[in-house]
Amino acid sequence: MPEVGQSAVSSEVEDAQEIVLTDDGPILVCGPVEIVLPDGSRVRSDRPVTALCVCKRSRRQPFCDTSHRSRVRIADLAHDIAQEEDRAQPQSAATR
């Protein structure tokens, strides 16, 4: 047993579960987790890191499926890119 005191408290704090809030997407949680859904059912994730959907757009709740990303029409994108004169090699995710 560790001695009761400052060091024990601080190591306890260091061991606290880290949860990362991203500005544009999911919440990241470390380690295997079991998630309780609103209806009481449970889903388990054994990934080293799990990305939980908070935008509610994912079709694989409670996990992120990148549905939070902005969607554009290629035609509009091409127009925007054409306005950027310097860009010789615009990227498109079209193939993937």
Binding site: T66, R69, S70, R71, V72, R73, I74, A75, L77, P90, Q91, S92, A93, A94, T95, R96
Partner: peptide
């Protein structure tokens, strides 16, 4: 540019 999802793309998976 990779994080924007085109909805009318001509790619293979589409």
């Amino acid at each position: 540019t990779l994080l924007i999802e085109p909805i009318d793309a001509p790619g293979v998976s589409h």
